[in-house]
């Protein structure tokens, strides 16, 4: 099968790969590039575990063809910590005990990050809306909602 070249930045580093046409971004990231932080929970866009940020927007990498990401800037949960220091969202998820099995966590953090990037002080309803595309089977969601609200508070305190 003919390979297609694709180039994008992943968490700030340039990546160039030859992929099979039709490869999802999820499979390209996991199998070709080795970033396994996006998870494949359904491969059909219903669970949110594969969520990544493409050019500032939340996207389901299992429904995104890698070849459509040429020239894009992609962020995954693996790239959030800077210099070994966790992102405030990651810190908040830890502090509120918002992870159990952890499989949905990277997708949840991606969804939360896009929310806070656009809406630094979200209401509870806005947090719920932002997380509503992500399935968690362990936690009952409440600790995750609390984590996002906590990260937002931490951000606003830092800004003040």
């Amino acid at each position: 099968m003919a390979k297609v070249p694709v180039q994008f930045t992943l968490n700030g580093s340039e990546k160039a790969e030859f992929i099979d046409s039709g490869t999802t971004l999820l499979n390209a990231l996991r199998d070709k590039i080795g970033d396994t932080s996006p998870k494949g929970g359904c491969h059909q866009g219903t669970c949110g575990a594969c969520s990544v940020i493409i050019d500032g927007e939340l996207r389901l990498s299992c429904l995104t063809l890698a070849e459509t990401c040429d020239g894009a800037a992609i962020t995954t949960t693996l790239g959030l910590a800077e210099g070994g220091v966790m992102h405030p969202l990651q810190r908040a998820f830890l502090d509120t005990f918002a992870t159990q099995c952890g499989f949905c966590t990277p997708g949840m953090i991606m969804a939360a990050k896009v929310l806070l990037d656009h809406t630094p002080n979200p209401s509870r309803d806005e947090v719920i809306e932002a997380l509503s595309g992500n399935i968690c089977r362990c936690t009952g969601y409440e600790p995750i909602i609390q984590a996002v609200l906590r990260a937002a508070r931490a951000n606003s305190q830092n800004a003040a």
Binding site: D31, T36, G40, L78, M86, F97, G102, T105
Partner: peptide, 21 residues
């Protein structure tokens, strides 16, 4: 006490079986 596995979960570094190829 904080969970020892949570830092792996929130940074995307925890290795599940399918993360090995």
């Amino acid at each position: 006490r904080p969970r020892s596995d949570s830092p792996g979960h929130v940074t995307g570094k925890t290795a599940y079986f399918a993360d090995r190829s």
